[in-house]
Write a protein that binds this DNA or RNA. Structure first.
Length: 423
RNA sequence: GCCGGGGUGGGGUAAUGGACAUCCUUGGGGACUGUGGAUCCCCGGACCCGGGUUCGAUUCCCGGUCCCGGCCCCA
């Protein structure tokens, strides 16, 4: 009987993993170049960790079960709570703290384009500083990662601020802020009438709805942010400091990337724990769901400890990135390691094994064909490597190797010491 | 959880209520006893699962499952 795999889960074969590794390495390497240190944590956590955070229907969207000890546990649906748990468990860490992680995360939802039940998620966070510099650094790292993957010009980042939105909504006499956020989150998915209707249902007047719609109607250049708010709000002065900070944040982000950065009032993110800046990256053509998302969550730490630790971070799932890279012909292996496939026409492998070892000591790829097949079959196997090295009685006697470049078929026999010196 | 479209060797496909299920490709081997990606030959490998209708089902019907996509939700 054939055993299939579980819905929404993926297998990855070598030809896929080579590229995946190469892409993932570029992402982590960029984070390390920013001074971020890697952490890791269990794939299984207590369900309470997520109940604390939001409660609601979250539990239905996780892979959860009761273990043999009667504990309710879940495969982690996101990295942030675990990251904050690690943070609050160590009081001795010098701040600011820059961490990244690259776990698999799980969500029990119907698979669709760019979404699986298991996926890799790159996360990075900056703890201990609540400032425009910290906000800009994290947005900057996010864009730098996309730039490093070759996506410059293909994406844009849309930024908003939860505290600004809260101020605006209060200024416009909206009382049910949380529901208002979830309506705003739907803005780009539903038509204007339904949008207005939802706001009416929570008792928002038509004038306010018009103003909200006016703000959300388009992504704007940061230069126009103040003007637009002055025109809309009953009282602008109370938000002035916050707007100035955002303007500064945008200025600093310009030092990290040339990509388009917009202010977009419709970006609020689904998570309830965000307190300041929130941002998402999208492909310019708007064909895919968000490439990455993040924001500031200053009070999440209070779920685990008494101390409030400022935090700002973001996450990138591998699924949408993969789609986007493939659409732009960037899903490529950029590993530069040279590879050698050693063919042997004798069944004495002493010399080939020694050669392979020496090559590996030079940090290059080498493997020995130990099949005893005829040479033509071995050469065929070698065709996916950079070089074939042929070893027979002649080479053994002469302390030499015959090396064939598999790209242009050029072949020569040289002394072994000469070959090693050339590596 | 809901809706739509799908499921034939590893990948891509053809046909069929009835006999050994088609072709391409990949893989293994050979023609070629020390030279690959050409050609030719040989070999291996498939009807998603269960039930129903039928003398007989890969084919028709129902259910399930998985895949693709959409909704809900979004970490």
């Amino acid at each position: 009987m054939k055993i299939g795999k579980i819905k929404g889960f993926r297998d990855h074969y070598p030809e896929d993993m080579e590229i995946r590794n190469s892409i993932f390495n570029r992402m982590t390497n960029t984070a390390e170049n920013f001074g971020y240190k890697r952490i890791d944590f269990p794939s299984l956590e207590l369900l309470d960790m997520y109940k604390l955070k939001s409660g609601s229907e979250l539990v239905n969207q996780t892979f959860s079960f009761t273990d043999r000890g009667g504990r309710d546990v879940t495969l982690i649906p996101e990295a942030t709570p675990s990251t904050v748990r690690l943070l609050t468990s160590r009081k001795d860490l010098p701040r600011p703290i820059r961490w990244y992680s690259f776990p698999k995360v799980w969500r029990y939802e119907e698979p669709q384009e760019g979404r699986f039940r298991e996926h890799y998620q790159f996360n990075s966070d900056l703890f201990g500083i609540d400032s425009q510099e910290a906000d800009a650094e994290v947005v900057g790292l996010a864009s730098k990662i996309l730039d490093t993957l070759g996506l410059s010009g293909v994406y844009e980042i849309n930024i908003n601020d939860r505290s600004v939105m809260e101020y605006i909504l209060k200024d416009l006499d909206v009382s049910d802020i949380n529901t208002a956020f979830s309506i705003i989150d739907k803005y780009r998915k539903i038509d204007k009438n339904s949008f207005s209707q939802l706001f009416k249902e929570i008792g928002v007047g038509e004038k306010s709805i018009d103003k909200i719609t006016y703000l959300l109607s388009e992504k704007i250049n940061i230069k126009n942010l103040e003007k637009k708010l002055r025109k809309t709000l009953n009282n602008y002065d109370g938000i002035e400091d916050r707007i100035n900070r955002i303007k500064r944040t945008f200025e600093i982000i310009n030092y990290y990337t040339d990509s388009n950065i917009n202010y977009d009032f419709s970006v609020v993110r689904g998570l309830s724990y965000y307190t300041g800046i929130v941002f998402e990256a999208f492909d310019i053509q708007g064909e895919l769901r968000a490439i990455l998302g993040g924001g500031r969550y200053n009070n999440l730490s209070t779920l685990f400890s008494d101390e409030e630790i400022p935090a700002v971070g973001f996450a990138i799932g591998d699924a949408v990135i993969e789609l986007l890279l493939k659409r732009n012909n960037l899903w490529l292996n950029n590993s530069l390691k040279t590879s050698y496939y050693i063919c042997s026409t004798t069944n004495n492998y002493d010399y080939p094994v020694k050669i392979a070892n020496d090559i590996r000591n030079k940090n290059k790829i080498a493997l020995v064909d130990i099949t005893n097949r005829k040479l033509s079959a071995q050469i065929k196997s070698a065709s996916s490597y950079n070089y074939a090295i042929i070893i027979g009685d002649n080479e053994i006697k002469g302390n030499s190797i015959t090396i064939k470049n598999m790209n242009n078929s050029e072949q020569k026999t040289i002394k072994y010491v000469q070959f090693m010196d050339s590596l």
